[in-house]
Design a protein around this nucleic acid. Structure first.
Lengths: 202, 202, 202, 202
DNA sequence: CATGAATGAGAATTCATTCAT
DNA sequence: TATGAATGAATTCTCATTCAT
């Protein structure tokens, strides 16, 4: 029973530390990420942090996992799966991007940091590939459905189209990091959405 | 003559140090950029580096200027201005992006690092804005010309379209940083080019 | 108990470092005070010193406090307060100065260093004012008592007289710093004592 | 002839550098004295300074000489030597101290810096002894004359009295360094003067 | 005489990590 | 689990001094 409680506590602590590291990474970048500051913000001793995460890299790995989780959670309520058209689902995806940029810029910021680091760190590159694969697969499935539904052009290869869309969505997100002007965000996302639609629709 | 040579030497040293810092920033990120390593790679004492760049920030500023210069130089021979259509010029722009990704990925890498840092450093944010403004203005001028030539839709606002295109081009570039697979690069750039064309053409 | 010992140890380390810094300041001046040397003399890593004193200034502040403590401790056993005349107490004060110069010249040396620095550092100026105020107040109380006892002239303003005496005592101390010849010290202190007595007595 | 002019120029440069170093020493202390800053303030290259003063110590030696010169120059017009009494001359000496504190505090500041350093530097100790000897000798001559004139007590040993007076005057000067309040200066110098007079007069 | 360029040695401070308790 | 204390190895930056020109 105590073991049970202990395990619960342990998980909580790890998660709390991860959460704080995630936010500090978003705000300060790898350049400014300090395990000491994470520990301080969590109200624990630095040795305690190292008990949970023996090295800084371990903590960073946990942050990557945390980011993946965040991306699982939709920022905008998704349409009821059953009845919705592929086009509507694609539009929802853009609304979700728009909302994420607005209400959870840390997700974009952490993604950008990881992206920059991925060049030097194969582990991070792999983790990002995983994230991308999921996103891309999801978009590809929408596009595929759209083709089957006859709304999208049939000469588009769903997976390759999805690959490009992912890259473009990220580009919009990164562009808005430094200057998070909401109207500019609206404009850019809308423009991208229109462009993609025009490109996909028959 | 002596003064001349002396001044030449001074500029050369500064430039050489800047160039080295630029490449190290591309490879190691801000996270791993060390003035000591820059000095070592240049074969000079660290105090000598500080003679030219009193602080690390001064060196970084020079690197930003250097990046701006690199972006001025086309990666692919531009078409002769006179006779070329807006569409051809736009295509050349994508070819240039493609070539830059292939042969000068450091440009993209440094840009990505600056982007990440811009959130915390207004100076860098301003510098990036400057870079973007040039690029965007150039694209807008092409689009405007295309509209006047009757190739592009007239209901597109050139400057806003250019804004989105810049973000998307960057997105493609960043996406290819971690995994610089040439065929993937070809595919992504081509996809973006086709998409944009389809969107702009009447 | 462990906490107790731990806390004890922490205080001890701080105090030991302070003590060493105090002596090194006395011997080398601010000009030659190096945190690295203090750490070395304490047998600890320089990072350990910074664990206790995050900055050099923090260490210096502790040294100032340490000096204040040293000045609290009489160098010569003070007369039993009750029965002694103001004149005898004043004489004891001079004996104390004489003994301090002989056996604890570091006190004078550190005081002189602080004095020189006080011009540029308002914090140190304030700390010195505090030290002076205590000393001056004490002397003023002796003089006041002497006046009430009828030994001292009543047309002397105790506080202003004390102010001058403090300055003169310091002057003697500083003068003896460079050349700590004991007989010269005896002579100078005796001369000052006689002069002051002659000035104060009716 | 050119040699002549050159020598003149050389002396001028040396003197100018010395003068600047003197003022910077007064303001920043040994702790903050930088040859680079002296050169910059003089508008010459640092290598040029080193041409005139091969080492920092050489420059400091020159500063000591400069201070000695400054002490030669009275701050207050001295009384016509012939007719003045020893008492009047002594009073003039105090007026001169008062004026020096007011209008040339750098003299006191540099003296205090040298004093603190004299403990570690026999060369400076010797130089200061020389300064003191002159001052002390001069005061002793006044006192001796006062005794011969019958104004001063004959049981005072002029040289020893002078020794104490020098120390006390310095003490007053140092005390006023950090807080150069003019009315406090007036008070302290007046108090010292009165005290000394009372002590010396029959 | 004067300078620009260069440097060795060292300065304070930082940081991830360890370890005894 | 948790902590206070400790540290090795860096990090940026400084400074008196040198030297070729």
């Amino acid at each position: 029973m105590e073991g049970q409680r202990s395990r619960g506590t342990r998980t909580d602590r790890r998660r709390e530390l991860t959460r704080i590291a995630y936010h500090q990474l978003a705000e300060r970048g790898f350049e400014g990420l300090r395990v000491r500051d994470v520990a301080r913000a969590a109200g624990v001793n630095i040795a305690t942090l190292h008990y949970y995460f023996p090295t800084k890299e371990d903590l960073i790995d946990a942050v990557i996992g945390y980011l993946a989780e965040q991306f699982q959670v939709p920022a905008v309520t998704p349409p009821a799966d059953e009845e919705v058209s592929a086009l509507e689902e694609l539009r929802w995806e853009f609304a979700d991007l728009r909302e994420r940029i607005r209400s959870a810029p840390e997700q974009i910021a952490v993604l950008a940091e990881l992206h920059a680091r991925a060049r030097r760190d194969p582990g991070i590159a792999a983790a990002l590939s995983g994230l991308d694969a999921g996103w891309q697969g999801y978009l590809a499935s929408i596009i595929g459905r759209g083709i089957r539904e006859g709304i999208f052009r049939s000469d588009v290869e769903p997976f390759q189209a999805a690959e490009a869309i992912v890259a473009q969505m990220k580009g919009i997100g990164y562009q808005l990091l430094a200057d998070p002007d909401p109207s500019r965000a609206d404009r850019l996302v809308a423009e991208l959405a229109e462009q993609i639609e025009r490109w996909l629709r028959r």
